[in-house]
C-alpha cells in the first residue's frame, strides 16, 4: 500500500469527526425540513391559539369573573393575568405532546427513518438529541409568540414575565421527554398515543391549576397536580408573570422537578433508542 493515499481506516476516522460532533444538529435539520411541510399548521396554531385562548378565557371568561368577584378576584390579580401564564405552559405542553409522540412512533415504526439515520454515522442517542433540539426551537417560537400576545392583551403585569417563556419551555420538555420515553418503547401500535392524549394530557390540563387554583379542587384530586409537570410549570410561571406568592422551597421543588423530568426523559429515551435500533 502506498504511503501517500489514505487507508480506508484513516478515511473512516476522519469521516466520522463531524457526525460524532454535530450528528444531533443534522437530525434537527432534518426535523426542520419535515416541519416545513406542516409549517402552515405550525403557524396557524402558533398565532391563532394565543389569540383565541387569551380572548375567550382571559377576556371573555375573565370579565364574567370580575363582574362577580371583583377585578382582583383570583390570587390578587385579574382572571386574565391569572390564567395567561398557565395557558402559555399549556401551549408548550401541546406542542411537545405532538412533537415527541407521532414523529417518534413514525421514526421507529411506521416510516422507520431512524434506522436510516443510524445506518449513516448517526448514533441512536443523537437521533433523540436532534428531536429535542428541534422541539426546543419550535417551543421557543411558539412560546415567544404567545408571550407577545400576552403582553398585547395586558396579561403580564411584571417585567419578569419574560422568564415565563423559559418556564413554559421547560414544562413542555419535562412532560414531552417523559412521553417520548414511553412512545419509544411502543412496538405494537394499538393507538396508545391517542389514549395518552385523551387520558393523560386532557385530565392533566384540567387538573393542573390552569383555570382555577389547585387548592379549590377536592383534596383527593390534588395529587394529579402534584405529579403534573404542568402544575409545577404553571405555578412557577405565575411567580414570574405577576409575582404570585410561593414559598421559596416550593419554587425550588418546581424547578428541580421539571428539570429532573426533562433530563431523565431525555437520557432514558437515548437508552431506549440505542437498545431498539441495535437489533
Amino acid at each position: 500500500m502506498s504511503q501517500h493515499t489514505l487507508s480506508g481506516a484513516e478515511h473512516a476516522l476522519s469521516g466520522a469527526v463531524r457526525p460524532r460532533r454535530f450528528g444531533g444538529w443534522y437530525v434537527a435539520e432534518h426535523r426542520f425540513r419535515v416541519m416545513r411541510s406542516y409549517l402552515q399548521t405550525v403557524a396557524v396554531t402558533g398565532i391563532g391559539n394565543p389569540f383565541l385562548y387569551l380572548f375567550t378565557m382571559g377576556v371573555g371568561l375573565g370579565s364574567l369573573v370580575s363582574q362577580n368577584l371583583g377585578p382582583d378576584a383570583v390570587n390578587g390579580v385579574s382572571y386574565l393575568q391569572f390564567v395567561a401564564p398557565a395557558l402559555l405552559c399549556s401551549a408548550a405542553v401541546t406542542v411537545t405532546a405532538e412533537e415527541f409522540t407521532y414523529p417518534v412512533l413514525l421514526g421507529f415504526k411506521w416510516n422507520p427513518t431512524f434506522y436510516a439515520m443510524n445506518a449513516a454515522p448517526i448514533a441512536p442517542g443523537q437521533i433523540i438529541d436532534g428531536i429535542v433540539y428541534s422541539v426546543i426551537v419550535r417551543l421557543f417560537a411558539t412560546c415567544g409568540i404567545y408571550y407577545v400576545f400576552m403582553v398585547f392583551f395586558g396579561a403580564v403585569p411584571s417585567g419578569w414575565g419574560v422568564v415565563s417563556i423559559l418556564v413554559a419551555m421547560l414544562t413542555g420538555l419535562a412532560f414531552g421527554t417523559m412521553v417520548m420515553t414511553y412512545v419509544a418503547t411502543i412496538e405494537q401500535d394499538t393507538g396508545q398515543v391517542a389514549m395518552l392524549m385523551r387520558f393523560v394530557l386532557l385530565p392533566m390540563t384540567l387538573f393542573s391549576g390552569t383555570f382555577f387554583p389547585l387548592g379549590s379542587m377536592p383534596w383527593f384530586l390534588q395529587w394529579i397536580g402534584w405529579i403534573s409537570p404542568l402544575w409545577h410549570g404553571t405555578e412557577l410561571s405565575r411567580v414570574f408573570a405577576y409575582g404570585a406568592s410561593e414559598p421559596a422551597w416550593l419554587i425550588v421543588v418546581h424547578v428541580l422537578y421539571l428539570g429532573a423530568l426533562f433530563v431523565v426523559g431525555w437520557l432514558w429515551s437515548r437508552r431506549i433508542a440505542a437498545r431498539r435500533l441495535n437489533k
Partner: peptide
C-alpha cells in the same frame, strides 16, 4: 468501537 467511523464509509 468504531461504528460511526465505519458507517461514514458505507452506503446501505
Amino acid at each position: 468501537q468504531f461504528g460511526p467511523e465505519i458507517r461514514s464509509q458505507l452506503g446501505v
